[in-house]
Amino acid sequence: MKLDNVAILIPCYNEGKTIRKVVTDCLNSTKNIEDVKIYVYDNNSSDNTVDEARSAGAIIRHEFQQGKGNVIRRMFREVNASAYIMIDGDDTYPTNAIPEMVKRVKELHVDMVVGDRLSSSYFQENQRPFHNVGNKLVRSSINLFFKNDIKDILTGYRAFSYQFVKSYPVASHGFEIETEMSILAIENNMYVENQVIDYRDRPSGSVSKLNTYSDGFKVLRRILTLFRNYHPLQFFGSISLLSVLIAILVFIPKVWIPYLTSGQVANMPTLIVCGFLVIMGLLSYASGLILDSIQKKEQREFEFRLQLIHNEFNKM
């Protein structure tokens, strides 16, 4: 199996106005790095993206299932390299950061380098105000549910190690992919570093494919799903506590106090509902305990897979 030294991966959908410049800038920024391959993965573009990328010197490949997550799954499956750079084709990221990102992966053994836009020029350059709000909301949500130090969750500019790429099970289909890979790195104790980068807004005529509302909702839903998957005891324990608390708050004034006064259960339907709420709480907590045990087993198996991938990489 052939192993590239550095693979620059560019997922593209209708980026004909900018992709030539992005590929050219990547080539110019990596002149001093040996064996750099630039792969442009086209996702059913209807413009001249493929022709522009090919004429600029990129290797063209295709993913016919629509969605950025599907493209990244294809890229990670097909490309083998010592270090990976993933960058969008919309010319919003500076390619001069690539050498430093590669250095961190290859020399410091960082599993994922995050191109941090939010600590530099993003909020000044970005002309889409609701995107700014969305970035802050996603970052706050992940800080609430997961303990982490990733500064920019939704950035499309990242560097990866071979170990990360080959161990990452891509489950998302669309733009929630960045959130998923960030949380996977956090939860599996992988080595993550932030690298502050400058950000510039899309050039005139280039249109964002991200839908602020529908894709934003998918990202938030994905965060909640991943919290349930990685922390089932906390998730189902919270449901259990809420159910029992509601049962107690209803039971005391509606059933218990009248019973002490009259010696009779005056609100039998309420008593039954309270009983069901308590049962639901107990079942929820029991589910959390079982799933937590399964999750711990998954973590141990993931570490074993990492060791196998590490051994495979050393043999190349």
Results as ranks from 00 to 15, higher is better:
S240H: 07
P269C: 06
L220H: 13
T261E: 15
I309Q: 09
Q295I: 02
V273L: 12
F276G: 03
Q307D: 15
P232T: 12
A266E: 15
I252Y: 01
S293Y: 10
L308C: 01
P253M: 03
L277P: 07
Y213D: 04
E303C: 12
L283Y: 08
C274S: 09
V278Y: 00
S287I: 01
C274E: 03
Y230G: 07
I290Q: 12
L242C: 07
I239N: 15
I223G: 10
M280N: 13
P258W: 00
A266I: 13
F217A: 13
F251H: 08
Q264L: 09
I252G: 00
V207A: 06
I257D: 06
L260D: 07
F276S: 11
I223S: 08
Q299A: 14
I248N: 05
N229S: 14
I272S: 01
S262Y: 05
G205N: 10
S284A: 12
I309T: 09
K297M: 02
L277G: 08
T225F: 03
I272K: 11
V244W: 02
Y259C: 05
M268G: 03
L291M: 15
G275D: 01
L245V: 10
P232N: 10
R228H: 12
T212W: 05
A247N: 07
V278R: 00
N267R: 11
T225Q: 15
V250W: 03
L306P: 11
